[in-house]
Design a protein around this nucleic acid. Structure first.
Length: 297
DNA sequence: CCTGGGTTTCCTGCTT
DNA sequence: CAAGCAGGAAACCCAG
């Protein structure tokens, strides 16, 4: 059983690593989504990233550091890796404000010290850790009720960076919710933790993955669409394509919408999603989902 | 090694 | 009939 699973899930590295290879099983059915099914950004030198890999890297950066998606204008990074590598620090700060120089250092680190083919996303954090000024005088966000955090150590400074400049609105959970309770515990543990262990190494959670597709329309080739933006209602247009994209992210080629939707249904109980009765492929963000509102920052 | 969170996989039954 | 939806149950994976 395990062997079978592994044999299915492991994608041949020789297919993925080559920067110009698009001969994966993902390419053919969704040719309109060029770049969506190629090697992941951390497998390839940034110089050879396509636009999607640049987007992946950015998304990973935002997710890993739990930044608000509005911190960075994704449209400013609708570029290839070649262009990304040639951008100056000024270009980065122009495109991403205060976060720009962290991104710049991250990409410099990847350019010169990247470990391609290794899924460990160290460069995202190492640079941040070494490049930050002293924030000892700054009030930590955790004390202001900002509870939903998946990464608490290395990237702490970058979060401060973003939030100090964007005045993020904290979210407040009810005591009945089990999900935030665990996050509270993590927050309380944070001051004791100084190590470099990463939380959520598999990347974003499913709902965040969905949210980020919705938030980057220029990278969303008709996969999911807002039905009611202000209410957080959205609909899957290409359910199987989204499932495959999710599977791609999790290195699981057997992902289907049926399985993805089961995971989505688990979110109802945690109030990350709310049921939308009678409408197929339609979901609604719940009160424990954050980062999807237009003016949430 | 153990545990818990977050899925992933499979399944049965129901609905559109 | 096909495609989705609802959840239960169990397995899996991984960080702590």
């Amino acid at each position: 059983m395990i062997l079978q699973r592994n044999s299915i899930m492991n994608i041949n590295p020789s297919v993925n690593v080559h920067p110009h290879s698009h001969q994966t099983a993902w390419t053919a059915p969704y040719s309109t989504c060029e770049g969506f099914f190629t090697a992941q950004w951390h497998d390839v030198h940034p110089q050879y990233w396509n636009k999607y890999q640049v987007w992946e890297w950015l998304q990973q950066f935002v997710d890993t550091n739990q930044l608000d998606a509005s911190c960075i204008s994704f449209s400013e990074f609708d570029i290839t890796g070649e262009r990304l590598c040639s951008m100056t620090l000024q270009d980065y700060t122009q495109a991403a404000g205060e976060v720009g120089h962290i991104l710049y250092n991250s990409i410099q680190n990847l350019k010169w010290h990247g470990n391609y083919g290794n899924p460990v996303l160290q460069s995202l954090n190492v640079v941040i850790k070494t490049e930050q000024p002293d924030h000892s005088s700054v009030t930590p966000w955790k004390e202001s009720g900002y509870l939903y955090e998946a990464c608490y150590d290395d990237v702490y400074d970058s979060k401060l960076y973003c939030r100090n400049n964007l005045s993020v609105t904290p979210i407040h959970y009810t005591t009945s919710s089990t999900y935030p309770e665990s996050e509270v515990k993590k927050s309380q543990v944070y001051p004791q933790r100084t190590g470099s262990k990463k939380h959520n190494p598999r990347g974003t959670h499913l709902w965040e993955f969905i949210r980020d597709i919705l938030l980057t329309p220029d990278k969303n080739p008709g996969l999911i669409r807002w039905e009611d933006r202000s209410e957080g209602v959205f609909r899957f247009l290409k359910s199987e394509a989204v499932a495959q994209l999710w599977g791609k992210k999790k290195n699981n080629s057997s992902m289907t919408y049926e399985k993805l939707s089961r995971a989505m249904r688990y979110y109802y109980k945690r109030e990350i999603l709310e049921r939308v009765d009678g409408r197929r492929l339609v979901y609604k963000f719940g009160k424990n989902a954050r980062g999807w509102r237009e003016n949430e920052s």
